[in-house]
Design a protein around this nucleic acid. Structure first.
Length: 582
DNA sequence: AGGGATCCTG
DNA sequence: CAGGATCCCT
């Protein structure tokens, strides 16, 4: 066999960057900002909701609370007094590393202030202690009910209001997903209060529950929604009699919770019409894209020789997710509130607008956008008419639909204002975990749009700074990628390779090792085959260009960039989990 | 002018 | 990996 084939003549001393500093240990680049002496306000005030002493220490409130607790105890025999959610929830990850990141981030100029505290917590206090009190009582009630429900769910969870996506049914793309924090529904041990925060996932259906449990859950849910309705009514009644300040405040806060307030899908190109980018359909796969891949040899040598690794092929499996997340549509508002309270569903459901940016690149073709499996057949025909190889399953592992109930970011914030313990910990900065995730995402997308990034980092509070930082990450990723490609292509040429089709990147090639080391240092993620295909194609394009002497043109790489930019694959849904590569 | 991408540098 | 410079596109 041709020694070149598959072997990819890789320079033995290829790897120019030896051991990089451990990513986990590496701190965020942000402190540089300080070093540069940027004159940013240092006296960033922490989230006022954490510091407002009235909120926690008002003795009067405390007394009231004690009384209400007694009452509530009658409803549910929850033994554990809950921690006050506000501080805990907002505090986010407790790991010191993240805390450092967050602290650092505060030194940056923030385009927008952090999550606002309840607007009335300070300014309008004089007029409405009663209202606040009511809200507090309501929250406490709900908390207890939540706890109660969790206790009542020995293994599975109640049919969640709003949880339409389940991810455990789908094999994970990588081994790194240990399942912790993924709502491991399998081992909910009952009354562990620490689990409360972890139960962020649940199956969307209760139909697998024993009927007794189901009945119990049903009752509990009714109790919950009833209590909520009652409490809300009473609060609203009071509010309506109160000065207008509170009314507007509450109105604003609830705006995001009422689905009617904002249409579920944008008028044009809403979620349901514009589903996720198609599985593995390369951007620009439409014929009109003028994709110069006709002469590419992508599919030919690859598919027969490198069957997909079984480790990562479990995906297409997911039970079809309910498109609309709400289990009780007639009570959307309550359900959404409860969904938040119960910590159900990943934040992506709530803040996760569909990556319109992804479709804005190229794959927005509506006809191809509706049938995920249709796209499976599409791709090979695009890449190579001759070799309609089936798509590597690793590229298919996402379902193109999301629950259509969405909240604007503002809605989420509004909810966070009302509810002291949002299920999402919005990070104001990027941490090493985000970087790692971004690197893994690079296997699927080399040119992510900012909207796509927003969709896949639902736990990041995006602002201009964060967005450009993340975009810059990918720019750096690309830089390294293209450098490796060019280097290997030149090496192949000097090694006497004449046929670019011989250049196929295998998992045991030097080039692959270099790439894997860079983007997947721990090797705990199995690189998808689609990435190998794209990388092979990139290599071949570089090879052709260099062999043709095009590299004398200062902008000779541009056409290559253009080609590669159209070959982004869809990113598996699992990446939308804020805690994904935990 | 502004945003995005690359190139270059540290 | 980040910052700055530069180019390109709109």
């Amino acid at each position: 066999m041709d020694p070149n084939a598959g072997l990819l003549p890789a320079p033995s001393r290829a790897c120019p960057q030896p051991a990089e500093p451990c990513m986990e240990g590496r701190s965020s680049p942000l402190p540089r900002e300080q070093g540069r002496g940027a004159s940013f306000p240092w006296n960033q005030v922490p989230n006022p909701s954490l510091t407002d002493p009235d909120w926690f220490w008002d003795e009067h409130i405390q007394a009231k609370r004690a009384r209400v607790e007694t009452i509530i105890r009658g409803m549910c025999l929850s033994p554990n007094p809950l921690v006050l959610g506000g501080a805990r929830a907002r505090d986010g990850p407790s790991c010191p590393e993240k805390a450092r990141e967050r602290k650092r981030k505060q030194d940056l100029p923030m385009q927008q202030p952090p999550l606002k505290p309840p607007a009335g917590s300070q300014g309008s206090r004089k007029g409405g202690p009663r209202v606040r009190e009511q809200l507090r009582l309501l929250k406490q009630q709900l908390r207890r009910l939540q706890e109660h429900i969790l206790q009542a769910e020995p293994r599975d969870s109640a049919p969640g209001p709003g949880s339409a996506k389940q991810r455990d049914g789908c094999g994970r793309p990588g081994a790194m997903d240990s399942g912790r924090h993924q709502g491991s529904s399998g081992d909910l041990p009952g009354v562990d209060e620490h689990k409360v925060a972890e139960v962020s996932q649940q199956p969307e259906e209760a139909r697998f529950l024993p009927s007794g449990t189901r009945a119990l859950l049903e009752i509990l849910r009714k109790e919950l929604t009833g209590a909520v309705s009652q409490a809300v009514d009473s609060v609203l009644q009071k509010v309506l009699l109160d000065p207008p300040g509170h009314l507007t405040q509450l109105g604003r806060s609830f705006q995001g919770l009422v689905p009617g307030g904002r249409s579920e899908t944008s008028p044009e190109g809403g979620a349901c019409e514009n589903p996720l980018p198609l599985a593995a359909l390369p951007r620009g796969a439409q014929p009109q894209a003028g994709c110069p891949l006709g002469n590419s040899s992508l599919a030919k040598p690859l598919s027969p020789r490198y069957p997909v690794s079984p480790r990562m092929t479990s995906k297409p499996c997911q039970a079809p997710p309910t498109n609309c997340a709400m289990a009780v549509p007639s009570r959307m508002q309550e359900s959404q509130i409860l969904g938040q309270l119960l910590g159900h569903g990943p934040p992506g459901h709530w803040s996760g607008r569909l990556p319109q940016g992804a479709s804005s690149q190229s794959h927005s073709s509506p006809e191809s956008g509706l049938r995920p499996w249709g796209a499976v057949r599409l791709r090979p025909s695009v890449l190579s008419q001759q070799y309609p190889v089936p798509l590597a399953p690793t590229c298919l592992e996402k379902l193109p639909f999301l629950p259509s109930v969405k909240m604007e970011q503002g809605g989420l914030q509004a909810a966070a204002e009302v509810l002291p313990f949002p299920s999402v910990h919005i990070s104001e900065g990027l941490n090493p975990g985000h970087l790692k995730k971004a690197k893994l995402m690079f296997f699927f997308t080399r040119y992510p749009s900012s909207n796509l990034l927003k969709a896949y980092f639902p736990d990041v509070q995006f602002n201009r700074c964060i967005t450009s930082q993340m975009i810059k990450w990918f720019s750096n990723f690309r830089e390294f990628y293209y450098i490796q490609m060019e280097k290997s292509a030149r090496q192949a040429i000097s090694d006497g390779v004449t046929n670019p089709k011989m250049l196929v990147i295998l998992r045991d090639s030097e080039l692959f090792r270099a790439l894997n080391m860079h983007y997947n240092k721990g090797n705990d993620f199995e690189v998808p085959d689609c990435f190998l295909e794209v990388a092979s194609l990139t290599l071949q394009e570089f090879f052709r260009a260099v062999s043709a002497g095009k590299d004398s043109d200062p902008s000779w790489k541009k056409p290559i960039y253009k080609i590669i930019s159209k070959l982004d694959s869809d990113i598996p849904e699992i990446f939308k989990s804020p805690s994904y590569p935990q």
